[in-house]
Design a protein around this nucleic acid. Structure first.
Length: 684
RNA sequence: GCGCCCGUAGCUCAGUCGGAUAGAGCGUUCGCCUCCGGAGCGAAAGGCCACAGGUUCGAGUCCUGUCGGGCGCACCA
């Protein structure tokens, strides 16, 4: 393996907010759903609502029209033989499923509606499907209706369908809701590793997806500047009398000292402990802000290289100084379930009974403030989240950095301004936290606290995107055995490998460097995004940096190929205007184009589904599907084995129509890659 | 012990509200540049969807149980 960078003693010292398994509140034995039944239920309700929108979006307005037409026939049938309503079926609310037809079956879209009605009408499903097909008044855009066994299949009119697809927008309209996405939140004491990589990429992709789904999005990165981790690294500098000479990245240099300090504890534990405590107190008083900032800036370089950007850094010391901890506790103390027992196990501590909201816990008491007066981490987190959803005010803000895109990054700051012209921080209708699955329980406690102190409409206000860990070549990351891998190392290697391939395949490409970055970083990001968050990812070089198969470069290549064709079309002087492209003979299009367009048009519904279920992998899978459909179309041959989908060799009219569709494919590919934070080069 | 997540092709993974003969990639084998980009396409081979019950017209998908694997169960940040 390549340089694994400074070793982080992960086993001894839990990592950042994002990857540590900390703040497990006292003794919670959970008997039922750890994530909490209320949240689960509301989540399902939410998904159900989304599904209906998805269905109506899925294929322009053809599908709703078809559903209405089917419903009309069903009404007729019920009038003639009134058994449906009588059996308790609400015809007006009856969901009429419509789905794509399998490859080898006749038709484009079909419905198994006959199954649903057959039993209640005591009729054979196939016969029923034939009856419905015969009576159906096909809406505009549907060319033909046919019963295929028990299924009711329809053929769309290619001209109408493709034009409708090209008219459909790629993104969803603003919905007036704001979501605060928290991700990254790496402890400011060492370089970020591949575990953080997954966090950053997931959070960044989710933010982009939520935005495209119509939400206003604010990305926050929480800086735990008062924690033990930062204190140890900063103390290590003094302890070893080290001086930073700039020979390597600052966070890597510091991370190595941090690990050295961990080893030194074995023979000098007491002195080190005393020193670290001292640094912690200075951190709490805000005396070392500049030192921590230096680390944060080094870590942000890594994030920027990956394409991730933020709106606001929130420093833990500022959260405490703003009084969110105290005021959060005051809010909590007004609850009857929050008590200060005089006797027993929790004598002297402030505890919260969550059993009313999280039934089934073996130990329903959560300690908020210890009997020695020190607040638990979860209490700070509750205060922070009360602010996130707009129930507390008082943070001050200052500019922090100009990001690569040009967007301003803000930070909380003790001497900042209480307001920033043109923007309002926090006040989310919803917060999504991208945090390691090992923190599922403390996250549940925070969400429960929001519910207990809220008005009742807040039950869905906190989501936890719980992702699984990243292992290295099959082994758990472990500092002690040298098994950890810095993001910077991965990024450098990815770009190096991508550059070698670019130079081999396209030696004359003028933008080779930019393409190598797009391809290398794209490959890494895609490897982190293509499967579900709850799946453990085993990081393997060959797999993560693969430029073939199910990968970002596969999708990027499909996009570049479409661009290439459209360049050639443009050179002939043809102007493409989507569905309004002049001289396009839409009627010349056929089933091949319908199949491709049917894939293109899924994008908005895919975006919405990914946003509502916090699941970027849905978009990644869609990008692969679309690229595959496009590659298949491009290489299609007729029965005689001749290519029959060439755009440039098509007759005039068909050429324009096909070119317009290819432009739609290109746009959808670029958009899907964009949702994943992956660049779409026009050549590669 | 209690709880959560996961068991789909040799390996890594998709699988839409429960719907038509379960799909990709990698690897293996065989084809495809007289055609707009071969980082591609087509084909072959490879499956008791962990197991057993149940619900349903219909189950990889929902319910119950069993067996494997991972993680979590601190007055820790």
């Amino acid at each position: 393996m390549a340089d694994t960078g400074p070793i982080a003693a992960i086993q001894h010292t839990p990592g950042s907010r994002a990857d540590r398994g900390l703040a497990r509140s006292a003794g919670h034995r959970v008997r039922c759903d750890l994530h909490g039944a209320p949240a689960h239920a509301s989540r399902l309700a939410c998904a159900g609502a989304a599904e209906r929108v998805v269905a109506s979006l899925a294929m322009t307005d053809l599908v709703p029209a078809l559903q209405d037409a089917i419903r009309e026939v069903v009404r007729e049938l019920d009038r003639e033989q009134p058994t449906l309503e009588a059996s308790g079926l609400d015809l007006e609310r009856l969901e009429i499923p419509v789905q794509r037809v399998p490859e080898d079956k006749p038709g484009d879209y079909g419905s198994p509606i006959a199954f649903v009605l057959a039993k209640r009408l005591r009729r054979n499903p196939a016969e029923l499907a034939r009856t419905i097909a015969a009576r159906l008044v096909a809406p505009a855009g549907i060319a033909r209706v046919e019963a295929v066994g028990p299924y009711l299949n329809v053929f769309v009119d290619p001209a109408a369908f493709v034009r409708a697809v090209l008219r459909a927008p790629l993104t969803l309209a603003p919905n007036g809701r704001k979501v605060v996405v928290e991700h990254t939140s790496v402890n400011p004491n060492k370089e970020a590793h591949v575990g953080h990589l997954r966090n950053i990429v997931l959070g960044d992709a989710l933010a982009r997806i939520e935005r495209a789904a119509g939400y206003e999005v604010e990305v926050q990165n929480y800086i735990d500047d008062t924690g033990r981790q930062a204190a140890e690294s900063l103390f290590a500098v003094d302890y070893f009398g080290a001086h930073f000479e700039g020979e390597r990245k600052y966070d890597h240099w510091l991370g190595e000292l941090y690990v050295r300090l961990g080893r030194a504890k074995e023979h000098d534990g007491e002195a080190i402990e005393a020193g670290v405590k001292g640094v912690m107190h200075r951190l709490e008083r805000g005396e070392l802000r500049a030192e921590v900032e230096r680390i944060v800036r080094a870590q942000l370089e890594t994030c920027f290289a990956l394409g991730a950007e933020y709106d606001l850094l929130v420093w833990e010391s500022d959260v405490v100084a703003a009084g969110f901890l105290q005021r959060g506790l005051e809010v909590l103390e007004r609850l009857p379930s929050v008590t200060r027992p005089a006797t027993g196990k929790y004598a002297g501590a402030l505890v919260m009974d969550v059993s009313a909201f999280l039934p089934g816990l073996e130990e329903p008491q959560v300690v908020l403030v210890r009997s020695d007066g020190n607040a638990m981490y979860v209490a700070k987190d509750i205060g922070y989240h009360l602010w996130k959803v707009g129930r507390l005010e008082g943070l001050r803000y200052a500019p922090f950095a100009d990001q690569p895109s040009g967007a301003q990054l803000w930070t909380s700051a003790p001497d900042g301004e209480p307001t920033v012209a043109g923007r309002t921080f926090a006040h989310g209708d919803q917060a999504v936290n991208v945090i390691d699955v090992r923190q599922a329980h403390p996250q549940t406690i925070v969400r429960t606290a929001l519910q207990m102190t809220g008005s009742g409409k807040d039950e869905d206000s906190l989501h936890h995107l719980a992702y699984e860990v990243v292992t290295l070549e099959g082994q758990a990351m472990s500092g002690r055995r040298g098994l950890t891998l810095a993001i910077d190392t991965v990024v450098d290697e990815a770009i190096r490998r991508a550059r070698a391939v670019v130079l081999e395949k396209q030696p004359d490409l003028p933008s080779a460097d930019a393409v190598a970055r797009a391809v290398g970083i794209g490959a890494v990001r895609f490897a982190m995004l293509k499967s579900e968050a709850k799946r453990i990812i085993d990081f393997r070089w060959e797999q993560a940096l693969s430029l073939a198969g199910d990968s970002a470069p596969y999708v990027q290549y499909a996009h570049a190929r479409a661009c290439s064709i459209l360049r050639a079309v443009s050179e002939t002087g043809i102007e493409l205007r989507g569905a309004d492209t002049e001289a396009a003979d839409w009627d010349a299009l056929g089933p091949l184009e319908v199949g491709l367009a049917a894939e293109v048009v899924r994008l908005p519904s895919v975006t919405l589904q990914a946003a509502e279920t916090d699941a970027p992998h849905v978009v990644a899978q869609y990008a692969l599907d679309l690229a595959t459909a496009w590659n298949g179309y491009y290489n299609h041959r007729d029965a005689a084995g001749r290519f029959d989908t060439s755009v440039l060799r098509s007759a005039r009219g068909l050429l324009e129509a096909r070119a317009a569709l290819v432009a739609g494919v290109r746009d959808a590919l670029a958009q899907a890659l964009g949702l994943l934070g992956i660049a779409a080069p026009e050549q590669m």
